[in-house]
Write a protein that binds this DNA or RNA. Sequence first.
DNA 1: TTACTTGCAAATGATTTGCACGTAT
DNA 2: ATACGTGCAAATCATTTGCAAGTAA
Lengths: 162, 162
Amino acid sequence: MNSIENLEYTVLLSNFKELLKTNRLKFTRQRELILKTLYEQNEHFTPEDLYLLLKGTYPHLNIGIATVYRTLNLLEESSMATSISFGVAGKKFELANKPHHDHMICKCCGLIIEFQNDQIEHLQIKIATQHRFTITSHLMQLRGLCETCKQKEPSFKQEERA
Amino acid sequence: MNSIENLEYTVLLSNFKELLKTNRLKFTRQRELILKTLYEQNEHFTPEDLYLLLKGTYPHLNIGIATVYRTLNLLEESSMATSISFGVAGKKFELANKPHHDHMICKCCGLIIEFQNDQIEHLQIKIATQHRFTITSHLMQLRGLCETCKQKEPSFKQEERA
DNA sequence: TTACTTGCAAATGATTTGCACGTAT
DNA sequence: ATACGTGCAAATCATTTGCAAGTAA
């Protein structure tokens, strides 16, 4: 870990502490380690994934999955994290410290490719304004097949229709 | 209902029957009425909503909610319907017979505004191609506040952060 | 001390599934 | 006749919540 990353984490941590203070919430070891792990791994986590990783990494912490859910919800509601919904299969969370981006998700293997496009963002804002709608977040996911999954069959056969 | 709508429904129904035949599934009264109701109401339905409406409209049918779920899943998997996920709060389905469009969703009251923008669609395809990704569907939801909900408080207070 | 947090286990709520009976083909 | 479909109730699974004990402020 180099000094730039350390600085980044320091800022993140300080933002988190501010958020907690503002809302009269407490800075606990569990909350700290959840933030730290999200930062260090820099991946998309399900609550379950993160829970198991924390349990493995910090056995003495004896963390409960409810705390993971509670903290992820806190982070998301305060815009320090974002989530991608996989419907019944749950959600995956990531920290919102990286620059904003969207996702391509392979329906077959779950691969997530990140991308970002300013033109689209600008168009979204323009459209929302036309409808007198205020965007607080957006969700743009391109679902489909990654390069390696293109050969699989759909669940239901479909024919060409007029 | 005018003759154009009737024609539209006839085509829809015929597509549905084809789909069923192709997959050796049966054309039942339940499946028919689910399709018909989705078409006639032309709204976004949760499985629960649709179940209650069907129960009220066709009391003698004695439809079960499991059948509604099964049929909506069938329609979605075969691309005759699409859904919007509301996370833990469930999904809303609509028929895919109308021209493609995306959604703005009010986080506060659940209002859904539909919109469509060709420029964005083209950009999406362009980006996917650059990543050798094949889009089968996309999800673009602008989440935020509609005109009438803009005065409410967030769950957690947030400060400006550098 | 006071109020917020935690882990645990139980509750919740949307969705799915096993099964015996019903029905389209 | 042969499968597939259905309603029902029970099961599932992600997520939330009540509670008693723990801990930050």
